[in-house]
Nucleic acid binder design. Sequence first.
DNA 1: CGACACCTTGAAGAGGTTCAAGAAATGTGG
DNA 2: CCACATTTCTTGAACCTCTTCAAGGTGTCG
Lengths: 246, 246
Amino acid sequence: MLHPAIKVACIDCKLHGTCMPSGCSEHDLERLDPLVSTRRKIRRGQTLFTHGERFTSLYAIRSGFFKTCLSTEDGRYQVSGFQMAGEIIGLDGIVNDRHSCDAVALEDAEVCVMPFDRFEEIAREVTSLHTHVYKIMSREIVRDHTVMLQLGSMRAEERLASFLLNLLHRQHARGFSRSELILRMTREEIGSHLGMKLETVSRTFSKFVVEGLLQVKHRHVRVLNAQALQALANHPAHGHGATHAA
Amino acid sequence: MLHPAIKVACIDCKLHGTCMPSGCSEHDLERLDPLVSTRRKIRRGQTLFTHGERFTSLYAIRSGFFKTCLSTEDGRYQVSGFQMAGEIIGLDGIVNDRHSCDAVALEDAEVCVMPFDRFEEIAREVTSLHTHVYKIMSREIVRDHTVMLQLGSMRAEERLASFLLNLLHRQHARGFSRSELILRMTREEIGSHLGMKLETVSRTFSKFVVEGLLQVKHRHVRVLNAQALQALANHPAHGHGATHAA
DNA sequence: CGACACCTTGAAGAGGTTCAAGAAATGTGG
DNA sequence: CCACATTTCTTGAACCTCTTCAAGGTGTCG
């Protein structure tokens, strides 16, 4: 469903500090205009693209919240990440001209559609755009590394602490609270992302509550002791994580 | 240590099907020449770059074998990947102008140094180069997703099977055996990469041997039953992996 | 040849999973 | 707006995989 969207230029968008054109000069910003061909609304539960689907565009999230899911032929399935306003999704599709994951809206959302071929045209003139996309992709790689660290060398509590802090951080960078959080995803989705079962997620939340780190009411989370959370995420408790030897 | 390397143009390099310029036209290939400013030899155990170090160049591996390691201030440490000839490392450094991981040679190696600013100059003329780097970065992202799947939803046996098949696949794509493998890394490094302890890696190898899947002599591995390995990597054994529900 | 790094294997223990049941939210249709 | 069905979340108890600790074996390199 393509909507006859009200045209909003990048230059007028509140997100342009966070989103695609961040780093472009004011002058270049105007020339970015034709980059966004349309905007598209996605209802909660609907997919923006699915794996196997032909890659045509990158998407900048204007509003709403997404998850991206990896899946394999044999039915393995995992949430690879959660994306919020100002972030770019679809980068995985560039290599093979096909998307390799599913993007699902966890709440009603709107995205800016940026056709990749048009993007390359524009970048021929606005060369700073290339640099910017390199940075975006590089950032994605570094982020994935963070997830690898979570999955590979943290125990359950540490993963959840680190995950919550990450969400809070990104939310705060967008001008929202640093201590309060509405989870847009289920315990199962959190678990899938962090490589643990939904029961473990739930139990870990409960433990944090008992210890006075959090206040949790279903999807509503309030941080009571940020330092302790941080410490959990940062200080391997002798347990699971390998520490540097060489 | 910069070596007064014998200049070898991309066009003459045996790897140009796998490496940076793959996908470039023969004509463009020549113009890629000035991309590689120098080559650099790295002895086994030496680092090509370390986290925090200023990012200047991408590196194409001409020969040898590397590991890349993530580490955090608090001493957490993890092998994020292993790289072989024809692969590009350093992409993580683009975002912040600083490398975010260490690259260590696991055997004597040689890399082509590609200064990033020079790269951007050349790409201004050879525009196909931009597209190519997008693809390389996108491939990196997709690969990282594979690792996330391994770490997040496979059990120890499945991880190791999947890991070995991946190494074999990449090796085979370079014209080497599909069933025999010399491991360049220790059990500890494999474990670090796969989120398991070295003892578990060792035990799992032993189990594969008992079951007739592999023949293992220290670093030398021979696959006896590739199908069974594949089945392990592909068919979640009811155990740990989440399967698609929605 | 001897020192050192690397690998294997065993036994005990911990962290997380599985299975199960019930409680709390959310959504639906009358 | 309320009753009901459904989804989501919580909690308990038994079990299992992987880790931890420990000791001995194997290979490698000066």
